[in-house]
Amino acid sequence: MKSTSTLLAPEEEFPTALSELPVLEIHVLHSRVCRQLDHEYLTDPAGAHPVTLDRHHELVAELDDRDAA
């Protein structure tokens, strides 16, 4: 899942099992998705893409689960 982009567009691949990834990869994904959200909110009057929002929620839930463990 190597990419040179700092964004993660909705059509790009996203892992299905976040719990299997190292925490560093989760943080990188979270950063890329947050940057994508910023980009979408700033460039699309309709707001963020539903896929990007879902990915953000999944990543936040995974990070919260790891903090609670």
Rank of each mutant, 00 (worst) to 15 (best):
L24V: 11
T43K: 03
D38H: 10
V60Q: 14
D44C: 12
H57G: 04
D67G: 03
P15F: 01
L29D: 03
L7K: 07
H27T: 02
R35K: 07
L59S: 02
S31C: 02
L53M: 14
T43D: 05
E13H: 12
V23F: 12
D44F: 11
A9L: 09
E62T: 07
K2L: 14
A9I: 04
L53A: 13
E12K: 10
R32E: 02
S5F: 06
P15C: 02
L63H: 03
H30G: 01
L18T: 01
L18M: 09
H56I: 08
G47W: 10
H39W: 15
T16I: 09
T6G: 11
A17K: 15
P22L: 00
D44Y: 09
A48H: 03
L24R: 02
A61V: 00
D64Q: 13
A61K: 10
S19C: 11
L7F: 14
A69V: 07
L18F: 05
A68E: 12
A9M: 10
F14T: 06
V60Y: 06
A17V: 10
Q36W: 00
D54P: 04
R32D: 04
L59D: 01
L29G: 03
Y41C: 13
E11I: 04
R55K: 02
T16H: 13
T4D: 13
R32T: 01
L37P: 00
L24H: 08
V23N: 06
D65L: 11
H56E: 14
L8K: 01
L42K: 12
E62G: 04
A9D: 04
G47P: 11
E11A: 13
L8W: 00
A17C: 08
L18E: 06
V33R: 01
T6V: 14
E20N: 10
L37M: 07
T6Q: 15
E20I: 09
V28W: 07
P15Y: 09
A69P: 03
V23D: 13
A68L: 12
L21W: 01
E58M: 15
R66M: 05
P22M: 00
S5Y: 05
A46L: 11
